[in-house]
Design a protein around this nucleic acid. Structure first.
Lengths: 118, 118
DNA sequence: TACCGTTATTCCCTGCCGTATATTACGCTC
DNA sequence: GAGCGTAATATACGGCAGGGAATAACGGTA
């Protein structure tokens, strides 16, 4: 049995995202951010955990909430512990939806890389 | 017959490229640049035609040539008309190869957009 | 009421990417 | 040899996205 000629010396690379009414709605970093918010319970802790500035993280959450019918993250300001943020059902769904597309896409890339004839 | 629920209010977006030994080898702009070089016969004219700085265009050509077994563009310096650049067979092949992947990917995006359940 | 840590918001600063500009090298034609 | 327009290369400039710092608002808790 012969080895395949093209062992992806020129692999196909790529990235995907989900567009919304005002530009990017979901993308890799945004989804990871939501997971971290779910894990840590606040935007600031989530941002710290992934070496992202709080400002940037806040803007991403704002952008996602604005573009989805139901907010993906509920923000509480003040109160016990100063406040926090929790992921909603809509957020969970968005995460699952994006990862599904993401993994499918990764398989697509790997598959097509083998078909590339350069 | 019912209309499909999801008319891509949240379409899947994305971009692809082909990696080489030193990073990006082929991508949308690079391939268009090669086509313009084939059309105009010089890097500078090609760059002008697509509002790209000559420097940037030159670097892209250099990067592609360095990463491919056979150069995709032959550069002539001096001589009639001051010189010029011509696309090689390898360049033609690279163009065809990328567009094939590109168009397949566009279909993939359109198809998956309909499957997205948000 | 004072405290606390978060959200919310503004301002400044820096690094990076690509552009613009300028200069030199090149080699064919006249 | 002079002229031409390109390739080749270095330097300086500008815009802008993202980061950092600073500050105010918030609302439970002790």
């Amino acid at each position: 049995m012969k080895e395949p000629e093209n062992q992806s010396r020129y692999p196909l690379g790529g990235r995907i995202w989900i567009d919304g009414p005002e530009g990017t709605y979901l993308a890799y970093g945004r989804v990871v951010l939501m997971e971290r918010i779910r894990e840590h319970g606040s935007i600031s802790a989530a941002a710290r955990s992934m070496n992202m500035s709080y400002r940037h993280a806040w803007e991403l959450v704002e952008s996602m909430n604005k573009q989805s019918l139901n907010p993906v993250v509920i923000k509480r300001t003040g109160g016990k512990g100063g406040g926090g943020a929790v992921l909603t059902k809509a957020g969970e769904n968005a995460i699952n939806c994006f990862w599904a597309a993401y993994h499918d896409f990764q398989k697509y890339l790997a598959k097509y890389s083998k078909r590339l004839d350069l």
